[in-house]
Write a protein that binds this DNA or RNA. Structure first.
Lengths: 228, 228
DNA sequence: CTCTAATATAAGTATCTACTTGCATAGGAG
DNA sequence: CTCCTATGCAAGTAGATACTTATATTAGAG
């Protein structure tokens, strides 16, 4: 059986190595890997994970299907490599937001939303990879970390405004904000260009409106929540 | 080629007839159809649409695969029949909410959310059918109508509180509420029983907090929205 | 240059799964 | 009873697609 090593291209994060790390690679091979990943990204973005065939990826990259399997053990590995790369890159971008801590709560959360929306818009294939693709354990980990970074960002900002808020409460609200984000993102990915700006505004409003009462109504606690 | 007629079982709505409406059916056959739909619902709920094979449905129903195809032309038709049934039933339940118009805005919207959450909890397979399954045009129509009923319910309530709100604005807010609902529902369907009550409360809060500013901040219009 | 390992592919195979065929049984109308 | 049609199934077929094999070509190290 063939043994694989591959590095993730166009990504500053520590390279993800799969299988044998001792395998030598030529420059030509590295180019092919990158070309294959770019081709995969294109086709995944066009057709979604399930509709995308490995043959289509190979064709898009201008190589034979067998060549693809010189560099990736299976279809899942391609999806996982892309998903890991994107997840790490996006997490990095989120961590970089307001590292000096000069933004207000609303500004920081708005910036978080914008960064996430731009990223998804720049890499439309990320959505299907995260939602539809079966990922390797390591890619699942990266995906989960990405979610946690989003949640932690919001939780930290909430607690900065309101130190009396418990960690678990803050995390919970971060999680709900993430769910709201994802729900609207689902529509954003299929919305017509004409409808997009309004939805982007709605996204900011929805998350903001969910979070601000946590800060303003906090003294009264859960009693002020919608009853029933 | 075999010709099909089937009626949707356990559903008060007008029966959905597929193919030849003149085909005679015995009581035994009707039982089988219902058993097959029940079996399909079970397996779809357990494995999701894509992982569910027609063979598994037949096995679950205790019949051979060929028998399944006596009653349904293909896998999609099974998913479509179930999805149509559920979509109509759920739309009916939504339309029945506060038909006397005695509930407050908050109560009515809360009731809408509760009805939708209970329905999805009662029929866990509905989610995968609507999200993952390729549906027949008629089932897609029923699904789309269901979404519209949700949106219209909220839009009507918004305009009842605030008659100056334009129809399109009201509809937009209804649509965003639906996206928020779906985003949180996605997590509810996979949440542990222990986490569910808190998420249900978060669902009510999220939708409520998104909608109330539409009523209270309306005079100032979009200017009061989160800037940028 | 030469030799070895990496790269490339044509032409498959293997498997999965939706769906069929051919034939046997049953049950209601007449 | 008799016949026609609905019901039922064992044993398939067909087509899609992930993945492999055998083999040729290339290119970098020494």
């Amino acid at each position: 059986m063939q043994v694989f090593t591959y590095m993730l291209p166009f990504c500053e994060n520590p390279p993800v190595t799969v299988f044998d790390p001792t395998r030598k690679r030529n420059a030509r091979g590295e180019q092919r890997q990158q070309a294959l990943l770019r081709a995969a990204a294109t086709v995944f973005g066009r057709l979604g994970y399930h509709q995308t065939t490995t043959n289509a990826i190979a064709t898009e990259a201008g190589v034979s299907p067998a060549t693809l399997y010189q560099f990736f053990p299976n279809k899942e590995a391609i999806a996982s490599a892309l998903a890991s790369m994107y997840a790490r890159e996006m997490a990095e971008a989120e961590r970089a937001i307001d590292s000096e801590g000069i933004l207000s709560f609303t500004e920081a959360v708005g910036e978080l939303i914008d960064v996430c929306m731009s990223f998804n818009r720049k890499h439309p294939e990320f959505h299907t990879l995260v939602v539809d693709a079966p990922l390797s354990p390591s890619a699942r980990e990266d995906k989960q970390v990405l979610g946690q970074v989003f949640v932690d960002f919001i939780a930290a900002r909430l607690r900065r405004e309101l130190p009396t808020l418990s960690r678990s409460e803050a995390a919970h609200h971060g999680q709900v904000a993430l769910m709201i984000f994802r729900g609207i993102l689902d529509e954003l990915t299929v919305a017509s260009p004409h409808a997009r700006p309004r939805l982007q505004q709605a996204m900011r409003n929805a998350v903001h409106r969910y979070l601000t009462p946590v800060l303003t109504e906090s003294k009264a606690g859960a009693q002020l929540e919608v009853h029933r």
